[in-house]
Every structure is written in structure tokens, then in C-alpha cells.
């Protein structure tokens, strides 16, 4: 029974990792850059939600939607103004650029909102339900349901809308997409905006659990583990990887005494290293289908 309880908690926190990892994957698939500032965008999302819901007193749903829109627009201009300039430079330049951007966001947040820990009330906080002896909090339900809905929406978007198909095409082959008349630059900025929006959703869903402060940007680093485990470049892989990381973390935390002290905090990084050493392709990689040049 305890095991199932742990797994449910793990799935909930894993969904958050998965959502952040999804942001990495979307950007990586399209532009082959990794956005090391993804966790910081999540943090900005949580702070903006705090400002709208906690300070201005907006309705939760309205605040949620507004937050996601603000961060998505922010993500669009982040690509259009800053990141696009270094396309074509070595991978190292993008790594450093996004790390630098992450520092700027974190510094900005701690100057503008301060270093205190904030919380805002959501319709889910503090409520729990019992199903057959299992205690499930509404927050966890909201995270799991939210992630499932979002996955459905994204799946529909990429499969059935014209712009979604254009995004897949530009990810597949930039040059061919140009020839087909797809505005590739605009599409890439749009992908950045979706990815930032997904991070903001994760931030707002996460806020009731971890509260809001600048340290939540570290989730971005754990989400790397999720993305790598799922095989960088696979959208379902990101979510599954995230859920596995979440469950592993919960289990390590509970059975810490049998392993060694403090394994919980580094379990995600251990999984990351082990994946890279043993099976760097990841679980859901599509690399096998790409032919070797």
C-alpha cells in the first residue's frame, strides 16, 4: 500500500519534470539547441502567477491563463531578439548563452520579487481525498490531470493543425521547410513560445507544493535527467522519463536507510549519468530511424 502511495506522489512530481523536459525536447527537436534556462522560465512563470493571483487577487483560472500567455509571449521574443542571433555558432555558444540568460532571470526575480518564499491560494491547496486507503491530494490530481490534458492538446496540435505540421516539418529539415514556403524563423520563435508556455504551466501547477522562490529553477536541472532518459527528442519520452525520475526520487527518499544517506537529492543526477553511460540513446529515441551519413 505504501508503495502505491509513493508511486502516486512520484508520478505527480514526475509530471512536473516531464513538462519541463518537454520544453527542452520541443526546442531541441526544432533548433538543436538546449535551453539551459528552462528551469528559470518555470520560476518566472511561478512568480508571475504569484503576482497576478496572490498580489492582484485575480481568479485562479484567469491568473493561470494570463501567466501562460505572458510567459509564452516572453519566450517568443526571447528567441526572436536574443537566441536567434547565435544560430550557426558552435553548440558551446548556445549552452553559455542560455546559462547566462538563466542567471539574468534569476537575478531579476530576486531583485524584483525579493528572496522571500511566497505562496498563493489555489482551489486545490490543502484538500485531500481518500480512495481505498490511499491519500491523494487535490494538488497531485491537478498536476496529473493537467499534464494529461496538455499532452492531448499538444498531440492534437502537432497532428492536425497546419501550423503544428509546419513545426514538425521545420524540425525535420530546415532547408526543405524553407523551400516549401514555411516561415522557419517565425516557426522557431513560436516553438520557443510554446516551450516557455509549457514551463509556465509546470511552474503554476508546482507552486502549491514547493512554494515560490528562486530555488525552484533547479527543477530545470533534474528535468535534464528526464529528457535524457526519455531519449532527447521524443515528446512521449520526456513525460515517461519525468515520471520514472519522479518515482525513483520518491523511492530513494523513503528507502534511504537501506541505500545511503542523501541519495534522494542526487538520485536524478545518478540516473542521468547511468543513462548516458549505459544507454545514451534513451528509452524512446528515434535515432535508429535516422540514417547514418
Amino acid at each position: 500500500m505504501q508503495l502505491i502511495q509513493l508511486i502516486i506522489d512520484g508520478v505527480a512530481s514526475g509530471c512536473i519534470y516531464g513538462l519541463v523536459a518537454l520544453g527542452f525536447v520541443l526546442i531541441y527537436k526544432a533548433t538543436e539547441t538546449i535551453n539551459f534556462a528552462q528551469g528559470d522560465i518555470l520560476m518566472l512563470g511561478a512568480f508571475v502567477a504569484f503576482s497576478l493571483i496572490g498580489v492582484l487577487g485575480l481568479n485562479y483560472i484567469l491568473g493561470f491563463v494570463l501567466t501562460v500567455m505572458i510567459i509564452a509571449v516572453f519566450g517568443f521574443f526571447l528567441d526572436a531578439v536574443v537566441v536567434r542571433q547565435i544560430i550557426g555558432q558552435p553548440a558551446f555558444a548556445t549552452v553559455m548563452l542560455t546559462i547566462g540568460l538563466g542567471f539574468i532571470f534569476r537575478g531579476f526575480a530576486s531583485i524584483y520579487w525579493g528572496t522571500d518564499i511566497f505562496s498563493f491560494s489555489t482551489p486545490f491547496s490543502g484538500k485531500i481525498t481518500e480512495v481505498g486507503g490511499l491519500i491523494i491530494s487535490y494538488v497531485n490530481i491537478s498536476i496529473i490531470v493537467g499534464t494529461t490534458l496538455l499532452m492531448g492538446i499538444l498531440f492534437a496540435f502537432f497532428s492536425f493543425t497546419k501550423i503544428g505540421v509546419a513545426m514538425r516539418a521545420s524540425s525535420e529539415n530546415q532547408l526543405a521547410a524553407y523551400y516549401m514556403g514555411i516561415p522557419v524563423k517565425f516557426i522557431f520563435s513560436l516553438i520557443w513560445s510554446i516551450s516557455a508556455g509549457v514551463a509556465a504551466i509546470a511552474g503554476v501547477l508546482l507552486a502549491p507544493i514547493t512554494l515560490v522562490d528562486t530555488s525552484i529553477s533547479l527543477i530545470g536541472l533534474k528535468a535534464f535527467a528526464a529528457a535524457v532518459l526519455g531519449g532527447f527528442g521524443s515528446i512521449p519520452g520526456a513525460i515517461v522519463g519525468g515520471i520514472i525520475i519522479g518515482i525513483v526520487e520518491q523511492l530513494c527518499g523513503t528507502y534511504e536507510n537501506y541505500l545511503f544517506e542523501g541519495i534522494r537529492e542526487i538520485s536524478a543526477y545518478l540516473v542521468l549519468i547511468l543513462t548516458l553511460i549505459i544507454y545514451p540513446r534513451g528509452l524512446f529515441s528515434d535515432k535508429a530511424e535516422v540514417k547514418k551519413v
Partner: peptide, 11 residues
């Protein structure tokens, strides 16, 4: 927060 921010900006 000024220090990390300037740090990132310079980078």
C-alpha cells in the same frame, strides 16, 4: 541578486 544578474549579462 545583482551579482548573478550582472554575471549573466556579461556572459
Amino acid at each position: 541578486g545583482l551579482e548573478p544578474m550582472l554575471f549573466g549579462l556579461i556572459l
